[in-house]
Design a protein around this nucleic acid. Sequence first.
DNA 1: TAAATCAATCTTC
DNA 2: GAAGATTGATTTA
Length: 294
Amino acid sequence: MNAPAAILEKDITPQGGDYEVIRRVIEKISLDYRDQPSLESLAEEVGETPGGLQKLFTRWAGLSPKTFLQAVTLDHARKLLDSGLPLLDTAYELGMSGPGRLHDLFVTHEAMSPGDYKTRGGGLTISYGYHISPFGLALIMVTDRGLAGLSFNDPGDERAAFADMSGRWPNATYVEDMSATAPYAARIFDRSRWCSDQPLRVVLIGTDFQVRVWQALLKIPMGRARAYSEIANEIGSPAASRAVGAAIGANPISFVVPCHRALGKSGALTGYHWGLTRKRAILGWEAGQLATDR
DNA sequence: TAAATCAATCTTC
DNA sequence: GAAGATTGATTTA
């Protein structure tokens, strides 16, 4: 198999190109969050003016850098876990507009039978393509039954991302076909198209245990989070929180199956297959989306 | 009090 | 058997 050259289409998400700067800012923040870095020092770090950085953040996340910074703190993450809170409290806390509709991406999921899984993708044809997303470059994989995989990588790591993903179903046939994946990309990363009347079709390819864990993830609404142990409870194996972590790590459809909404019981972001920085970015972005909801 | 250490627990390869 | 995107208890500085 030859890893594909990355072929970039036009930037379908206007804010997609902002991610590189955002990523570096988040990295900086998480490095020395202890002494609350100022807007000025952050801007200097990434070679922007304070005003420019402010504008960029607002465009990308709908939040000012300061509010965004708050949204990714341990303290705030802890609140996402607290199931006693009404859903909209996140938006209130961030000091933004009042209550409104709570959107989320609606999906219908279908699990492959254990038999199908054992063939490790044998007989399956998977179309894939790279697309710009608000969280870096997204590698999307689809079958005729729906979305099967979504991964992120930074520019230059396309080969690694492809190897990672295709290694999960080594016997499948892979075809680069952006015309097949582009509609998914457009749909997934454009929130105005997250509607319930035509749910996104998703196929879950994994072991029985993994599929149960992923289904539990799908039930977590946007702007909320669950602890690994809570998910373990939900699927009926209360002692299996560690195994749950492993299963979540194996989730092939990141973002759509919201593995970023799984946190340690303390609210700590314990891990993320595509990098903790990206997990922070996605959580902060979600907070911003909620806050701008009218 | 926070950080480090340890054992218990479950799934996968 | 070994290795995890965990947790809760215990110990240490």
